[in-house]
Design a protein around this nucleic acid. Structure first.
Length: 643
DNA sequence: GTAGGGTTAG
């Protein structure tokens, strides 16, 4: 016994051992395991089990059989070391308990999900079970689903069916998850069909998984169809629907769905609903709606949830409302690395680069170690504020002092930083030599810088790289067109336009949104769909007149067409952001900040337009475009945008 | 008797 105690003491099993004085204590005595690989260690079921010597009769008689088995299960459950499990395995074989569904399932579950999980071992063990049940399959399928073995879960599901075992909703749930994780659309479709044939169409949880599956494949319509067909829809089902709309770019509908849930009392929104809706508000720049959700969060008592606080910081920051972001940040009792990174990024995107760096230093004084995303925030702070030297120093220090190797996002910030500062060759050199394969975004960032500085030869080179990556988008060609037109290179403009036409490249329409009393209004160029279109166009005409008096001249290089000056100015007049701004002036009281969100980059002319508008109409104007904030006050742009 | 399912932070 002394030997056994010593053995188990090492693995902290003394307590369990005391409970299990029965037959299986002999494992340690009669098996001498020195585990190497599974092949060597996994006991063979076909071998004749050695007889287990009877334990001390006095002890055995004092413990009932069920108690013994209970103890064995407890021991399996509490195994924290692999050698110990191997001993139990040998014992299960010798006692033939391996063929007992309770023990084999418990043991399999332990192999699959304990700290020392070993899928190869699990699988070999699984095939030692003569008649595995659906539960056994489920356990292994679940294990494969959460691993990185792509199709194994699906194959097991197939095998299970071939053996005549009926998958239950749990099996289906895991298989769908595995199809989602490993991008097996057609396998998932097959499983969906089977779910319907097997009659599980009223299982709310299973259908929710299916919705998420379709959502992950951008099949919003299919996900909605599943939702509509659900007999009972709970909050999670609604949340998955909302997350589907959010993922697939139908952000405005997310706000509508939240209102439906709340007002029609169909399902009470929970913390996850709030999280998703706050993200939607952040995307849209819908400050008022975001504030409404914030109140709801406080009312429901979710205020102390960290993830919600972090999303709120991001939302307020992305709405250009840094004070409120900071209030939320201050209110977090135990700030972690995510809290700090969110605040740093918020400061950065709003042009408070120096403060972002101060926050980074403060965070370290508080003993919080930065992570990859913290550095993304810090580097973007440098890029937003033109802090070239500081940015390069951070890039150098992050690996030296913090052991974090720069990733593609970090290099992206640095390329942006150098590019905006006009150090285009240096930016190009960084991309070529950075040791991480540049992605389309990296090149696109440089292309944006070429646009700012009118550097068309480098722009052409960048497009070549994008074509090489097979990642060129309409927006890239538009940037190159912008470069040509801004430098008056009309021949190239015509040539490129012809090429785009030949390739059938369709440009993404510019779209601007503005929120009014919690309702998000959307505009595209020359938009005539708004119910107040006549007033809006009248107001835009009036604004144009006023701005011209103040010295605003249309920046015609923004327009791509090789038109006459008059025509160019006209073509620029109805850009989506101008329509949104005019609507803002029209529909909000004097002095109120106008916030506009745009899906693409704002053009130079619209930038000037907003700048003049902020002075003439005495309005603070905040435009968030695809890359950054443009903050206008008293006829000036406070951000360092190199315009 | 055993085990197992859905959404979610910067």
């Amino acid at each position: 016994m002394a030997h056994i105690s010593a053995h188990f003491d090492r693995y902290k099993y003394l307590t369990s051992l005391k409970l299990c004085i029965s037959s299986f204590t002999t494992i340690a005595i009669h098996q001498n395991f020195t585990p190497k690989t599974f092949q060597e260690t996994c006991p063979n079921n076909n071998q004749q089990p050695k007889p287990i010597p009877n334990p001390k009769p006095s002890l055995k008689s004092s413990i009932s059989k069920s108690q013994e088995q209970q103890n064995l299960i407890s021991l399996i459950k509490s195994s924290t070391q692999k050698p110990h499990l191997l001993q139990i395995h040998a014992h299960l074989i010798r006692t033939s308990l391996l063929q007992n569904p309770i023990f084999s399932l418990q043991f399999l579950s332990c192999l699959c999900f304990s700290a020392f999980r070993d899928l190869r071992y699990s699988r070999n063990f699984f095939y030692q079970i003569k008649n595995p049940s659906a539960s056994h399959y489920n356990t292994l399928i679940r294990a494969y689903t959460s691993s990185n073995a792509p199709k194994e879960a699906f194959f097991l599901y197939k095998e299970m069916r071939q053996k005549g075992l009926k998958p239950d909703p749990i099996s289906f749930s895991f298989v769908i998850k595995s199809c989602m994780k490993f991008r097996l659309l057609f396998c998932g479709l097959q499983v969906h069909g089977r779910i319907l044939r097997d009659g599980f169409q009223s299982d709310c949880l299973l259908l929710t998984t299916l919705m998420d599956f379709y959502s992950s494949f951008s099949s919003r319509e299919e996900a909605c169809k599943v939702f509509d067909e659900m007999t009972q829809k709970d909050t999670v089902a609604w949340n998955v629907l909302i997350s589907c709309y959010l993922r697939n770019g139908r952000t405005r509908d997310v706000l509508m769905l939240f209102d439906t849930m709340k007002n029609e009392g169909v399902c009470e929104p929970d913390d996850v609903t709030c999280l998703l809706v706050v993200q939607a508000c952040a995307n849209l720049g819908a400050l008022e709606f975001g504030e409404k959700v914030h109140h709801y969060i406080e009312e429901c008592g979710y205020g102390s949830a960290l993830n919600l606080s972090h999303s709120l910081i991001a939302m307020y920051s992305r709405c250009g409302c840094l004070d409120k972001a900071y209030d939320v940040f201050k209110g977090i009792r135990e700030k972690n690395v995510v809290s700090w990174s969110a605040m740093i990024s918020g400061l950065a995107m709003n042009g408070y680069g120096r403060d972002a760096i101060l926050a980074f230093e403060e965070m370290q004084r508080m003993g919080i170690a930065p992570d990859e995303q913290t550095f993304t925030g810090v580097l973007s702070a440098c890029s937003h504020c033109g802090l070239v030297d500081e940015g390069m120093e951070f890039l150098d220090r992050m690996s030296k002092d913090f052991g974090i190797a720069p990733n593609i996002h970090h290099y992206g910030c640095v390329v942006d930083l150098l590019g905006r500062a006009g150090l285009l060759d240096q930016a190009y050199h960084i991309i070529i030599s950075m040791g991480v394969k540049p992605d389309a975004t990296t090149w696109r960032t440089l292309l944006g810088a070429c646009r700012i500085h009118g550097h068309f030869s480098l722009g052409e080179r960048v497009i070549e790289h994008l074509i090489e990556l097979k990642a060129q988008e309409a927006g890239d060609y538009v940037l190159l067109l912008n470069i040509y037109s801004s430098t008056g290179n009309w021949e190239k403009v015509t040539e490129l336009r012809k090429l785009m036409k030949e390739k059938g490249i369709q440009t993404t329409p510019g779209c601007s949104t503005i929120e009014l009393k919690g309702v998000v209004h959307e505009f595209i160029v020359d938009d005539i769909s708004h119910p107040r279109k006549y007033e809006i166009y009248d107001k835009l005409g009036e604004i144009n007149k006023q701005l011209k008096i103040a010295g605003y001249v249309a920046e015609i290089t923004s327009e791509l067409h090789d038109l006459g000056v008059e025509d160019k100015a006209h073509a620029l007049s109805y850009h989506s952001e101008k329509l949104a701004l005019a609507f803002g002036v029209l529909a909000t009281p004097p002095g109120k900040t106008i916030r506009v969100t745009k899906n693409l980059r704002i053009c130079v002319d619209c930038h000037n337009f907003a700048k003049f508008l902020s002075g003439v109409y005495n309005r603070e104007v905040i435009i968030r475009d695809r890359t950054r904030f443009h903050h206008f006050r008293n006829g000036r742009c406070s951000c360092n945008n190199y315009w």
